[in-house]
Write a protein that binds this DNA or RNA. Structure first.
Lengths: 333, 333
DNA sequence: GTGAAAGCGCTAACAT
DNA sequence: ATGTTAGCGCTTTCAC
């Protein structure tokens, strides 16, 4: 690959002039500029962004760490972020923490060492991720997304999870589902905790009537299936099952279907996230759609902000209720 | 952030000695090594991998370009690749081509300019991606995955799509489904073309009896729904619908379900990929599981191989048939 | 406006 | 085994 030195030689100008033309940093006489551009085209010159990064002390690169890419919500996040960054010639370095704070810590190091201009992180744990995140944030601007490590003094961009749960409960009440049961995760995950807390608040306020204490497992299809299988042995009829996310909800629907429980005639089910296949489940799932595009845009804006140190901010975006048949027989489709 | 220079000064050794200790490139007297390590720890030193990359002419970085990350198959691929690379301190630069060859070309440039050690690409188009891929491959080792640009002389790692379709048809025949209908994509995508070609070969060989000409649209849930809605107006009973991928199959199941067509009693449906939610559809979907882990491992091996230029290789991995209820009422679950 | 030269942080000759 | 020094490819003072 040709270097800028060879381009300068071919155009018979100095290295500095070639650099100015190619990086557009300063005005250059049109004639010289044309010669440089011609030589560059001729040789098929491409700027070495590693060298530029070293010199400029910025790499036009953003790091992302998520607990698990296979989770469709995080996959959507990756998609939104890459698409937001690419028009500005920036690129996303992606790491998968494999739901492990150790792997997460290594990933953060790998990204900081590569001099990323900013770091977007969905913390794997609400508490155990604290140390690694704080250390990383000392060296590079860091934004938390979706989940939060409390007390770390770091920016956060996320959906208003509590509002989402309230929307679900309002909708259920409106359809006549007074009795509810929350099935979520006990994981050390702030998004899940906020949803659960919102549900408990509603119970305390008498806005819904719990069939039993919340059932807590993990945010997976498997747990939803298991919970569903356990539930059908109870007197469930007339209850709306509020799942902590879509994976659990899809597992629940599957288990109820197998057991011959009619949804939404006997039991209602709701989810959370609305990524994935919530519109082709049987029945289609009423759920809360996360504002992924807004969250991604907010994260990019914060992580690339040029301002100096400031108070940490918390940006919440309102999710949207998507009503489908799993709660309302009249819903189309 | 401290530089290696400061570490050397603190340890009272030369720059070179500090570098040798910290990069482990050469033996150093234990006592000096200890001093360097202590100083490094003391100062919280971290190697600047941009500088190292410039000097070593390798960045421990691999680029990936996929047509669309939101496709669960590609999301799984990203996950497998990141997990394979992270133990070796390597990192994945991910770009989404947004199903556009223009965006794909820009992404390839962005990655080559960042001096990635290798490039893993799922070409967006079988033909139109050729130029950009060939150009990129001139500068860096490039491996195609899943789909192939023919005649470009580039390595390929993929599932044996034809074998997958044969497995499906054998299974269907074994269950008594003689008559079949293929619903796939007309996209310029070699994986889809190989599946379609395998189906046509089976028809020509009399291994299956087509209800009609293959229905071709796109690899999406929406097309599956649309195709399903169109199909229910025909005399479909007794036919096995072979979908080109799971998205189409899930759309088909949804449309058939809405129209009151019983699967698998009246009609069978099969998919391809087995990522996503094929086990919680109603009914669970018989499909072909792509050997994603093997594909990812093969791609990494090839892309990081140290050998010089050689003949392009084509590695095919055998997929697995996963039988579920959508073709066989006796299937568990 | 242009060129010469320094230097980003690191590693690898080369010399000792 | 250790130190000195050049240089990876680029941008950016600093002089003119």
């Amino acid at each position: 690959m040709p270097t800028i030195r060879e381009v300068a030689a071919a155009a018979e100008v100095s290295l500095a002039t070639a650099s100015r033309v190619l990086s557009g940093t300063r005005r250059v006489t049109p004639e010289l500029a044309e010669r440089v551009l011609a030589a560059s085209r001729e040789l098929g010159y491409r700027t070495n962004l590693v060298a530029r990064g070293l010199r400029r002390q910025r790499t036009d690169t953003v790091g992302l760490v998520v607990p698990r890419i296979a989770n469709p919500f995080f996959a959507r996040l990756v998609q939104e972020l890459t698409c937001l960054l690419q028009p500005d010639e920036r690129v996303l370095l992606v790491c998968d923490a494999q739901d492990s704070v150790e792997v997460e810590a290594e990933a953060l190091h790998a990204l900081v060492d590569r001099q990323v201009d900013g770091l977007i992180v969905v913390p794997s744990s609400g508490a155990a991720s604290r140390a690694a995140l704080t250390a990383a944030a000392a060296n590079v601007r860091l934004v938390q997304v979706d989940r939060v490590v409390r007390g770390a003094g770091l920016d956060l961009v996320a959906a208003d999870h509590a509002a989402g749960i309230d929307m679900v409960l309002d909708h259920l009440a409106g359809c006549g589902w007074r009795r509810t049961l929350y099935v979520g995760a006990s994981e050390d995950d702030s998004a899940g905790r906020e949803r659960l807390a919102a549900y408990r608040r509603a119970v305390a306020d008498g806005r819904t009537e719990p069939l039993a204490e919340p059932l807590l497992g993990s945010f997976s299809v498997a747990f939803g299936q298991q919970a569903g299988a356990a539930l059908v042995r109870r007197a469930l009829a007339g209850t709306a099952v509020v799942a902590g996310n879509d994976l659990i909800a899809l597992g629940l629907l599957d288990a109820l279907h197998r057991a011959g429980v009619a949804v939404p005639e006997e039991v209602a089910v709701t989810g959370f996230d609305d990524v994935g296949f919530t519109d082709v489940s049987a029945p289609p799932l009423t759920t809360v759609r996360q504002p992924v595009a807004e969250i991604a845009a907010g994260a990019v804006e914060l992580v690339l902000a040029e301002d100096g140190p400031r108070e940490p901010v918390e940006w919440r975006f309102r999710p949207h209720l998507v009503v489908r048949r799993s709660t309302d027989p009249r819903a189309q489709p």
